[in-house]
């Protein structure tokens, strides 16, 4: 299990993490999402021991990564293809990682097979496409056979087949009991692979939960389109619903379509309002994300990418 507890981290005056707390249970895939510069990569680097938190703790199975006895078995991480050296061959690179982790070299061929790079294993990484580098990076995270996986933007540069493969692999790994934390700016991709989501804004986990709970929170009610919303609105209020007025429609919050249709049937005729549509306000998790992050600076001058 991964546990962030009140983690603070600043680069000089620029505060990136301001009390980040969340958990990633074993046997699940948790996605972390947030605007550029929101601290996703910083959070992962703190967990991986590359950065020291100013306060708080980031633990894997109850211990900081730096305090573990066997790094390779504890954590498999890939923090971007920039750490894959161009001059080495694919197999040479994985051998090096295996040697550092104390993993068996005969696992290397297995993982090259798994990521589909067996045929290109003796080529230099400089000749690889972005997708191939991503696959090699993922193999480097797997070669130690760690229980916990941390992946930063794992589907970047992958083709459709690669994305599908990655998704299936992560799902099956979680089902086998692994604890997986991944960051992505592709919310739609996270929705497909993750069980849980953490929305990062202003250096804290502004919202977290299962995909289902976030989807449920994202369907707030029903939109009633009519020619006179002001006249229709009191009917819903009298029936006990919370409403907001929008141009050309009434937004009935927290109710479903049959309930709203019943109110409309009894009220609209008497109020002489012509109702032209009753639809569920089917917003997605994306809308929840945008709400949570709308007040944050989208492109701060100092972003993690520049560090």
């Amino acid at each position: 299990m991964i546990r962030f507890d009140n983690v603070h981290k600043a680069y000089g005056e620029h505060r990136v993490l301001c009390g980040l707390s969340f958990e990633v249970p074993d046997g699940s895939v948790t996605g972390i999402v947030g605007p550029n510069g929101s601290g996703k990569t910083t959070a992962l680097k703190v967990l991986c021991g590359l950065l020291s938190p100013d306060a708080g703790t980031a633990l894997i199975d109850g211990r900081a990564y730096r305090e573990t006895d066997d790094a390779g078995r504890t954590l498999g991480a890939f923090l971007g293809h920039a750490t894959v050296p161009a001059t080495m061959t694919g197999v040479g690179y994985l051998n090096y990682v295996a040697d550092l982790l104390g993993a068996r070299r005969d696992h290397v061929r297995t993982y090259l097979d798994i990521v589909g790079l067996s045929g290109a294993s003796t080529q230099r990484v400089g000749g690889y496409s972005l997708g191939m580098r991503q696959r090699l990076g993922l193999a480097s995270a797997l070669v130690g056979e760690a229980k916990t996986l941390v992946l930063d933007e794992p589907v970047n540069g992958l083709d459709i087949e690669g994305v599908k493969w990655m998704r299936d692999y992560l799902r099956s790994s979680a089902e086998a009991g692994r604890c997986i934390l991944l960051s992505s700016h592709l919310l739609s991709e996270l929705e497909l692979v993750a069980d849980r989501l953490v929305i990062l804004a202003d250096g804290v986990a502004s919202r977290e939960g299962t995909i289902e709970s976030l989807r449920a929170a994202a369907i707030p009610g029903v939109l009633v389109t009519c020619d006179d919303p002001q006249t229709l609105q009191p009917s819903f209020t009298r029936a006990g619903a919370e409403t907001t007025l929008e141009p050309g429609r009434v937004h009935v919050i927290g109710r479903d379509v049959p309930w709203v249709a019943g109110v409309v049937a009894s009220a609209a005729a008497g109020a002489h309002v012509r109702v032209t549509g009753i639809v569920a306000a089917t917003r997605g998790i994306e809308d929840v994300y945008l709400e949570e992050t709308s007040h944050t600076e989208r492109h701060p001058a100092i972003t993690e990418a520049t560090r």
Binding site: C48, L50, Y65, A71, A77, L79, T83, P85, V97, G144
Partner: peptide, 10 residues
């Protein structure tokens, strides 16, 4: 390479 090494050997 060094960034990777620091990750695998903390």
């Amino acid at each position: 390479v060094l960034a990777g090494a620091k990750l695998w050997v903390p």
